[in-house]
Design a protein around this nucleic acid. Structure first.
Lengths: 211, 211
DNA sequence: CAAGTCAGTGAACACTCGTACTCCGAACGG
DNA sequence: CCGTTCGGAGTACGAGTGTTCACTGACTTG
């Protein structure tokens, strides 16, 4: 039972990762549906045929990139929301966390924003599935707060999805704005989230139960 | 001063429109950056060379599609918001209007959603410009309501942008959901907008002026 | 240490692509 | 009516595409 290293498998993973990295780099200025298999292998320095040892398609490579980008983020946002502090602080910290992540690996998030509605079905579905998981996690975290007493499961999921969608929106806004307009976007996002938070506080007072 | 017909120009516009229509059809399952010039002309039934008589690029064709889709919508949302009725009614009508438009011309909105963050710069910019105009219009309409007394210009624009972004989000959600899940999406969107509306009503009570 | 596995090679296949030419003929303007 | 304009056709080019195939040689395994 030697699942340690293995020179062969190590090298294979290395090449695979090189393919992913090269693809991400190329995807900065184009979308996945126009990304060529040869283009990627050329950037890595391997033969086009070698690509097939790792991915069936460029679509499959896209799905792998989705996992790489979003898979490691689970629990993160929920953790921020569960932190202590008043709602205003938590809100600021959430936005800050997003801004930091986007700033640290812009290419990954640009990829997600671009392919969320892009032309490659499997990738769209993979992103949607990951985002839905985020929404569930956020809903769960929100449900454990005292401020969410009396909220239905459905409304919590609605709110969680709202936050998640807005995070994606913010990420893509940050990317389009560039570093110099980052503070502006952060400021506007905080205000929008504050609006939602205020609405949340008065939801049970005013929300009609109809339909 | 004969800007009437002209057989020649009429025919030219006809071909141009045929190119746009064919492109839109092809873009249903791929994104603009992977759309070939030849592919479009083949679908129309003209020579590849003829394309250049109408557009310099496929990018230019994309920009034209943006104008076609969003150019005719100006004033529409603002008009709905300016209607009489309580805020709840206006909100429902807004969502209804979106759902109707998306249902009537899905391909156009799919294109917008896809290319908003797509790989073609000029098209992204064209969409962003149009959406900003919408935000301004909505902000103006909101500012004229009694409920917006005391709101700063900046906050009105923030709110207008919020609504517009959410409309785009809703449109793309409707497209992904398909007709059978449409009611579900509409319902969720109404709730989200209601949340924002409630927050809006209490904005001045609770929003700190800081930063 | 021999047998087998398998990541990566290299050449070839049958395409599609954007673009540069020349050319045609119907619509146009004076 | 006649010369000009110009939307579109036709052809050809070089470059790039995904995929298949037989292959090699370093690693792994019994």
């Amino acid at each position: 039972m030697s699942h340690t290293a293995g020179i062969r498998q190590t090298q294979k993973l290395k090449t695979r990762q090189a393919l992913l990295d090269a693809a991400l780099l190329l995807l900065e200025h184009q979308s996945l549906s126009s990304l060529g298999l040869r283009e990627v292998t050329r950037a890595v320095g391997v033969t086009p045929t070698a690509f097939y040892r790792h991915f069936e398609d460029t679509a499959a490579l896209g799905v792998a990139l989705v996992e790489e980008t979003l898979g490691s983020l689970h629990g993160l946002i929920a953790a921020v929301l569960t932190e202590t502090g008043d709602s205003e602080e938590r809100l600021d910290r959430s936005v800050e966390v997003i801004a930091r992540h986007v700033g640290a690996q812009p290419a990954h998030f640009r990829f997600i924003a671009r392919e969320q509605h892009g032309g490659v079905g499997p990738v769209r579905e993979a992103i949607a599935a990951q985002l839905f998981r985020f929404a569930e996690e956020v809903a769960l975290a929100l449900g454990q707060e005292p401020g969410s007493a009396g909220w239905s499961e459905e409304d919590l999921l609605m709110l969680g999805g709202f936050y998640v969608d807005h995070m994606v929106m913010t990420a893509s806004a940050l990317l389009e704005a560039g570093p110099e307009r980052e503070r502006e976007v952060v400021r506007q996002t905080r205000r929008r989230l504050r609006l939602v938070t205020i609405g949340r506080a008065h939801w049970l007072d005013e929300a009609p139960a109809r339909d």
